[in-house]
Each structure stands twice: as structure tokens, then as C-alpha cells.
Design a protein around this nucleic acid. Structure first.
Length: 673
DNA sequence: GCACCTCGAGTTCA
DNA sequence: CTCGAGGTGC
């Protein structure tokens, strides 16, 4: 009796939930509501009451549970199941045809290639993970590999099903990784900005920024009130053999998929669709910034592969960005930490896609010459990648003859030294080793996030420290006292304590960071790490000669020369000495040092088959940790193949080529030596 | 010697 | 984000 009753309640609740889910689907996904808002409210209220009576039957996928979990204090990082790739951009028919040519060159002439063309929503990419049909995690794109966990906010988006729509009896996928774009409809954006303006809060520049800001709310209730939408456009894990099938599957599972996608076979058809999308984009309720063109067949996608970050099987055609016209008031010169003189245009401030632009980089002398940019010119600017202002061209018809051609100064604006331009180089340099710009910019680099990461020490503070004569080089930072800091403007007790603590804390940075912070030419974050791990200590690095350095992978003669000549300067030697006395790390932890005598050092290794105890990534990481290179296919350059069960063709090839084959056991024994 | 990729360096605004 | 330049593979 008891059990029967319980089942009746559950079935009643579930029936109600499904009804609500269906109405949400009709309203938010299909845009064809069958009931009024009031009727919808009645249904949800009824469900809430029922759930309140039987809290033990509340499930996480219930439509009443979109907002839950309360306010959190931060976002955690999550690794994507497979990377969320970014797409290469094309801006013209010509570039689109180049794409077509590249694709066709990989296949025989008679191969049928189908393209799927879909609008590119201007929002932010997210990955939604469904386990057994339930939404369990949502993450932003981040750097493509690791993103931020925004599950609690994404749950509030009503066009995202908390539970996949699966027909009764149909199979529920174990794991599904849905990729799509979270966006804010234009109406919602305008309403939000109006509200913010009323409250005297800063307005968002565009719907995309608003969507991003809304998704990064710590309180999901705020997100829920922002009426965000979601378009699904791809499947990671769980994809079908054809992209078009994956889209159809997403539609069936209850996602909103752009209804305007089409499958075509030629680039001229693609171009035709792009023109159509461009014409129609103003009529849509949301912003689009282009059109995505993908190869339909996943098998063909795999053949094409990826180059670095971008897949070779898809491109994003970008609509021409917003432009603005303004005048060049002046051209100024900035001196960077390497002594390069960089010209910048001072512009008459102008609004452009949400912000006011007053400056634009002009890169170098050649750029100005090529575009013939003169002081007083009218110019067209846009924002490259929606962020960085760029001068596109001069409006020559508006010239009146008063414009001043730009002449690169022959002296450094900071120290009046003669500047030089080496043959074959674009950059003009001030080579005064005591140029104040070098010291200042060097310090700014030293404290920057990827180097010593000293918080509360921005350019404003650095400039004051130099002006007051408190700091001349990075080592002086570690001698600062609170009394000295309090002399600075806008520096109170609290900020001074924080800054001192941040400086102290920076002493824990590892050697590779310290090496990068020194700012040796051609030694960026990556190269610094390679050098730090290869030599282990500053003493060994200093002792290294040209040949030894340039024999290292990724280090060529230029970098080697730069490193050797850096340490040959007494001033630099002295700096390193003092920093070392201050307690900075000039040694790599033992575990991070690469042993060049290790059997696998510099060897190319391929892992294949199922290893008995390790998973493949772990094994590969172990190999990388001792300085091996991991490759995916066997060639005559391969030194070792580590093979597990069901190793297949790679093992056969290794045997053919006479490459040494190791078992997991042998690999482990050798790697741990 | 050339093509391709990766890295370094400089960059804007809120 | 974009450019130039360094490094490497063909």
C-alpha cells in the first residue's frame, strides 16, 4: 500500500515535470508557446507545492531546480574532455577559396566534400556535459583546454535542457559533450543597459560582454534574471559520423540549434549563403559576427587534422567589423623594454563598438610608410578581433595639404641616443644600455603576472618609485621599506603592507619565472622554462657556451647568442648576484631538472596500444618529464616505441623499421633510472 | 632555401 | 590580437 502510494506520487510529479519541460521547450527552443505565461506559472507553482510536500522526490533535473546551490565565492577550473578549438578567420571570398584549395589538396579529385554552413552567434563558447542524459557540468571555453565551471549559472538558461529529451524506450547516451554559444538577445541587452544606466552603473559595451558578465556572476539568481540564450552547434564526445547528423541529434535532444544551417557542396554555394546571412543578420534577435563553414564528414575532418590551435576542416567567415572615421592628432613614439621605438597614433577620440578610442598602434616605420599615414590625416579605424584599435586606411580625398608626413626620429625620445635600424629588420632601436626606458619597462616586465607576479605594483607605482629614486633595478624592490613606500601618492598603510607582502611572496617563484623576469632578449616564458629545466641553476647556465646552448631543441643561434651576451655584461652579473642575495630562486627544484644523461633525453617516442597499468597520457607525461619528445606516428626518426596490448599498425611499422620496442615494464624501469 | 609553426613583444580600454 | 622573427623539417 505504502509502496503503491509512493509510486503514484512520483509518477504524478514526473508527469508534471515533463509537462513543464515540454512547455519550456516550446517556448525557449522552438519559439512557439502553446500556453500563456500565467498558465505556465500555475504549473510550476503546482510542482513546487508538490515537491515541498515530498522533498525526498526532488531531483536535480526538475524544472524547479534551475536556480539552486546559492551564492558561490569563486569559479573552479575544469579541463575539457576534448579541447574547444578556435577557428581560423577568413574575411573574403579569396581566402575562402584558399581554404577550399587546402581542403581539396588532401583528397582525390573525385572525393565528395560537403560543407555545413551556419551563422556564427556572437556570444561565448561553452561545453555542456550530460551524463546519462543529465546536465552535470558546464564550462566556459577558457584557453580551449581548461575552462571555468559555470554549471550553476548555465542551469538557469531555459533553452538548455537539464535533462535530454529522449523518446520513451530510446537509448540515453552515457556521455554527451554539447558545444554551443551562450548569448544575450539584443532586446535583453538593451533592457539591461537601460536598467544599469538608471542605477548609475557602467553599461555593457555589447551583448557579448553582457553575456560574459552575466555568466560570471557568483549569484545564479542574477544570471537567471538576465535572460540568456543558448545555441548548440557541435558535439564533442558523442558526435555522429557527420556534422549534419550531430546537429539533427542536438535538435532531437531538445537543444536550440540554428534553424538556418545548410549543407552544400561547393564554395560558390557557401559564398551565396554568406551573402544571404549578411543581408538577414539585422533581422535576427541576436548578434551574429560571421558564418561558420565546416566539413560535414568527421572522417574527412580527421584526415585534415589541425594546425596548432585551429582545425584545418573549418573556418569562420567574419563579417566586416564596425569602422569609424577620425583624425590623427599626433604620432608619438614609445620605447619598449627591448629599446624598440614604436610609433602610436594619437586620435581624436571616437566611439567604436562600445568603447572610446583615442590611440592606435602604428607598429613600425614601414607600416606608416605603406599606409602613408600623416599627422592631421582623416583615417578609418576598426578593432582587430573586436579589441585592439587598428588604422585601416587614410581617407586621402579629405587631405588639405596641411598634413605632416611622419619622420622616424634619429634620436631616442627618452635619452637622445642615436637610434639604429639593422638591415633586414623592421624595428628601430635605441641601443643605449642605460636608457631610462629600458629600466622602467624592464621593471614593469619583472613584476608582471607571468614573471614575478607582484600584485599591486603597476606602472603607476613603478614610475613613482623610479622618480623618487627608490628603485633603479629589480633588486632594489626587495630592499624597499614601509616608510619609503608611504612617500608615494595614493599609497596608504594597507596598500604598503600588501605590496611588501607581495614582494616578499614573489621570492617563492621558481627559477624559470625568475629567468623570464630578467627579460633577456628572445627568452620568453617558454624558452626560460626550457633553459631552467635543462641547466638547473644560474651557474650552469652562465657557464654554457654557444654550441651547447644551440644544440638544445628549440634553441637556435640567435637565442644562444642573446643568452651568452646577457651574462657577459657586468651590470647583469651584478644584478643576478644581488637578486640571489635577496633570496630569489636561481635553482630549479631537483624533480624539474632534466637529466641530459637520461636514456630518453631528446629521444622521440611513440606510445601505442593499451598499457597494462598506466594510462597512455600518464606514460607520455613521464616521458616528457625526462626530456623525451612524444610523437603520434612511427617514422625512421622514432627512437622508441612503447607498446601495450592490441598495438596494431604502429608496432608493425616499428618492427619493419627496426625501431626499439619496449614493454610498459621495460619503459618504467628505464624511465625511473 | 622555403614553408610552416611557435614564440616573443607590443598593444587598447574599462 | 597581430605582427615579425626564430627554429625546424622538407
Amino acid at each position: 500500500m505504502e509502496a503503491l502510494n509512493k509510486e503514484m506520487v512520483i509518477s504524478e510529479i514526473e508527469k508534471l515535470r515533463n509537462e513543464i519541460r515540454h512547455h519550456e521547450y516550446l517556448y525557449y527552443v522552438l519559439d512557439t508557446p502553446k500556453i500563456t505565461d500565467a498558465e505556465y506559472d500555475v504549473l510550476t507553482l503546482k510542482l513546487r507545492e508538490l515537491e515541498a510536500c515530498y522533498p525526498e522526490f526532488i531531483t536535480n533535473d526538475s524544472p524547479t531546480r534551475r536556480v539552486g546551490g546559492g551564492v558561490s565565492s569563486s569559479f573552479t577550473e575544469v579541463q575539457h574532455l576534448s579541447p574547444l578549438l578556435s577557428l581560423g578567420n577568413v574575411f573574403s571570398l579569396r581566402e575562402l577559396e584558399d581554404f577550399e584549395r587546402r581542403v581539396h589538396s588532401e583528397f582525390t579529385p573525385e572525393t565528395l566534400i560537403e560543407y555545413v554552413v551556419e551563422p556564427k552567434i556572437d556570444g561565448l563558447a561553452c561545453s555542456l556535459i550530460y551524463e546519462k542524459g543529465q546536465l552535470v557540468r558546464a564550462a566556459t571555453r577558457g584557453d580551449g583546454v581548461v575552462g571555468e565551471d559555470v554549471t550553476h549559472n548555465v542551469r538557469t538558461i531555459k533553452s538548455i535542457p537539464l535533462k535530454l529529451r529522449v523518446a520513451p524506450g530510446a537509448e540515453i547516451p552515457e556521455l554527451l559533450d554539447v558545444r554551443g554559444e551562450v548569448y544575450m538577445p539584443r532586446v535583453a541587452f538593451m533592457r539591461l543597459n537601460a536598467e544599469r544606466a538608471d542605477k548609475g552603473e557602467a553599461e555593457f559595451a555589447n551583448p557579448r560582454n553582457a553575456a560574459a558578465g552575466s555568466l560570471r556572476q557568483l549569484n545564479p539568481e542574477v544570471t537567471a534574471a538576465r535572460s540568456l540564450g543558448f545555441f548548440a552547434y557541435a558535439v564533442g564526445t558523442g558526435a555522429k559520423p557527420y556534422h549534419a547528423e550531430s546537429l539533427a541529434m542536438l535538435t532531437a535532444y531538445g537543444f536550440r540549434v540554428s534553424e538556418n544551417w545548410q549543407k552544400v557542396q561547393t564554395i560558390s554555394e557557401v559564398w551565396h549563403l554568406i551573402e544571404l546571412h549578411d543581408k538577414k543578420r539585422r533581422e535576427l534577435a541576436y548578434d551574429t559576427d560571421g558564418v561558420v563553414v565546416k566539413i560535414n564528414s568527421v572522417e574527412q575532418q580527421k584526415t585534415l587534422g589541425a594546425t596548432g590551435k585551429d582545425p584545418r576542416w573549418a573556418v569562420a567567415f567574419k563579417f566586416p567589423p564596425e569602422q569609424a572615421e577620425t583624425t590623427v592628432k599626433d604620432i608619438i613614439i614609445q620605447v619598449g623594454r627591448t629599446g624598440v621605438l614604436t610609433p602610436a597614433a594619437v586620435l581624436e577620440p571616437v566611439r567604436l563598438s562600445g568603447s572610446t578610442i583615442s590611440r592606435a598602434t602604428l607598429h613600425n616605420e614601414d607600416f606608416i610608410k605603406e599606409k602613408d599615414i600623416r599627422i592631421g590625416d582623416h583615417v578609418i579605424i576598426n578593432k582587430a578581433g573586436e579589441i585592439i584599435p587598428e588604422v585601416i586606411r587614410v581617407v586621402t580625398e579629405k587631405r588639405n595639404g596641411q598634413e605632416q608626413p611622419f619622420i622616424m626620429p634619429s634620436q631616442c625620445p627618452e635619452c637622445e641616443w642615436e637610434v639604429e635600424r639593422k638591415p633586414g629588420e623592421v624595428a628601430v632601436r635605441c641601443s643605449n644600455p642605460h636608457c631610462p626606458a629600458l629600466g622602467r619597462e624592464g621593471l614593469i616586465h619583472f613584476v608582471s603576472r607571468d614573471a614575478m607576479n607582484i600584485d599591486g605594483c603597476g606602472p603607476a607605482v613603478i614610475n613613482q618609485l623610479i622618480a623618487k629614486g627608490l628603485v633603479k633595478d629589480p633588486a632594489d624592490l626587495y630592499m624597499l621599506t614601509k616608510v619609503e613606500l608611504l612617500q608615494l601618492e595614493r599609497m596608504g598603510e594597507k596598500s604598503a603592507d600588501n605590496l611588501l607582502a607581495a614582494i616578499e611572496e614573489s621570492k617563492s617563484r621558481t627559477f624559470d619565472k625568475v629567468l623570464f623576469a630578467l627579460g633577456i632578449r628572445h627568452v620568453g616564458a617558454k624558452v626560460a622554462r626550457i633553459l631552467a629545466r635543462r641547466f638547473g641553476s644560474i651557474a650552469k647556465l652562465k657557464a654554457a657556451q654557444m654550441e651547447e646552448l644551440s644544440s638544445i631543441d628549440d634553441i637556435g643561434p640567435k637565442i644562444a647568442e642573446s643568452v651568452v651576451s646577457y651574462f657577459a655584461v657586468p651590470l647583469h652579473e651584478d644584478l643576478v648576484q644581488r637578486l640571489s642575495e635577496m633570496g630569489l630562486n636561481f635553482m630549479m627544484p631537483e624533480t624539474e631538472i632534466i637529466d641530459i644523461n637520461h636514456v630518453f633525453y631528446g629521444k622521440t617516442m611513440v606510445f601505442t596500444g593499451t598499457l597494462p597499468t598506466l594510462d597512455r597520457t600518464t606514460a607520455q607525461n613521464m616521458a616528457l618529464a625526462v626530456g623525451a619528445k612524444v610523437a603520434s606516428s612511427v617514422s625512421k626518426k622514432t627512437d622508441y616505441v612503447v607498446a601495450g596490448r592490441e598495438a596494431g599498425s604502429k608496432l608493425v611499422k616499428a618492427e619493419e623499421l627496426g625501431v626499439k620496442v619496449l614493454s610498459e615494464q621495460e619503459f618504467l624501469a628505464l624511465v625511473q633510472e
